[in-house]
Amino acid sequence: MNTAEVDRLSVGELGNETVVHLPSGLLGFEQIKKYVLVSDPAEEPFKWLQVPGDSSLAFLVISPFQAVPDYTPEIPDEDVRSIGLEDPQDALVLNIVTLRKNGRSTLNLKGPIVINRFSMIGKQVVIANAAEYSVQHPLPPGE
């Protein structure tokens, strides 16, 4: 991680920051190619994907498998190739959470962000089995 390039974001001492490169950007945000993935142990399993240089803009993300244990996204081959993934184990899958009113939140299961955990290069992918899943999958309520 080139610390000279990354803007220092105020996260707190517990935060762990990694730069993520999305050469295609997120859908609708194609011009933003670089994000900082912030992991605060107190917030696990949630993480923040923050826009460098604008600490008021971020996406709440989560690895989907705890909330949706039977989620089986089919990642198209071209997308696997574009991020240099050789093994599914090398993939970090993060789905975007939308915080909504009344404590209800939803998860986008059609368009996960798939990241090569070694290069930290990723892509927001439209899964081949998108028709099976919702863009607004309700997060199960906790205690």
């Binding site: 997120l26 609708g28 917030e43 696990e44 949630f46 803009l57 971020a58 709440l60 986008n108 199960p140």
Partner: peptide, 29 residues
Amino acid sequence: EVYDEIQKNNKEAITAPQRDLPRLPGSPK
């Protein structure tokens, strides 16, 4: 169709970071 749906969802999702996060079964406590 799917591009527009995901783009719309991305735009709804973007937010300033906050501390008040949902609780998931089996985590926070």
